[in-house]
Amino acid sequence: MENKETGHLESILSGARSNAISTWRIIRSSPLSMFGFGLIVLYVGVSVAVVVAGRYVLPYGPLQLNTGTPLSPPSFSHLFGTDNLGRDIFSRVLAATPLDLGIGIGVSSLALAVGGTIGLVSGFQGGLLDSVLMRITDIFLSIPSLILALAVSVALGPSVIHSVEALSIVWWASYARLARGQALSIKNQLYVVAARASGTREHVILGRHVFRNLFDTLFIYMTMDIGTVILTFSTLSFLGVGVQPPTPEWGSMVIDANSYIATQPWIPLIPGFAIFFAVFAFSLIGDVLRDILDPKTRKSML
């Protein structure tokens, strides 16, 4: 009985590593991760719709003033109400989706590519190169990421591009650390030793054996991390160095309406919850996938 279950799980696990269908089976098995998956589909759908057909999707222009009485509560003509300038909050929250989501996915993919390469080379090569790269990584990991991104954004001057640059400078380090650890353990696996013994060239081993195995782990980490990038980016805007008004962005919408928290709480809360659900969705999926790939928790699932 126990063997049968173990075998079943092993097959799910090897499936998760090789194809998307099994990953889908795992996501479907937990209601929380289904919820997360649904949310991601919704956010991506809204982003695509806004980019492709913004004028037809949004009820009002996101920058249009006095679409209704300023500070009016949610109603049928203004689903999320209006802000102090009479702008439609529903249109603004939707219009901000491609920006926040795009930056989340963009910065974390870049971090995966840069950090992943650094960690892979570092772990596989070893020696002096490894020590130097890892000490640099340690230094970056010692600086609180929000504070560093904040300081770099201020140094470069407040704008969206500069805050994306600031985030990219900060973000790669944890990927490098993770990739190095993985590369070190994969390097000594039997199948790598066997490949080398059979005369496979080093760069083929690196690409075919080490990289492929490492990518899954990094990708799952990235899934959770997209949300963290969105959080940090919107916090930068909240602090006034990211997106500049009147461009709609969730974090800056919250700070703009900060003073209405007691009287018209929906104005700051709705964009805040737009961030919350985006981050929550990516974290849910990442958390479930991580439980499956992490050998420590995987053992306990048997």
Binding site: L32, G227, L231, S234, T235, F238, G251, V254, I255, N258, I261, A262, P265, P268, L269, G272, F273, I275, F276, F277, V279, F280, S283, L284, D287
Partner: peptide, 22 residues
């Protein structure tokens, strides 16, 4: 518990603080 700690993780610091204030 998982839903609870993930929602803490997903809450922007300013949103959590504002809700508590409210």
């Amino acid at each position: 518990v998982r839903g609870f700690y993930l929602s803490g993780w997903a809450t922007p610091s300013f949103l959590g603080a504002l809700v508590l204030v409210l």
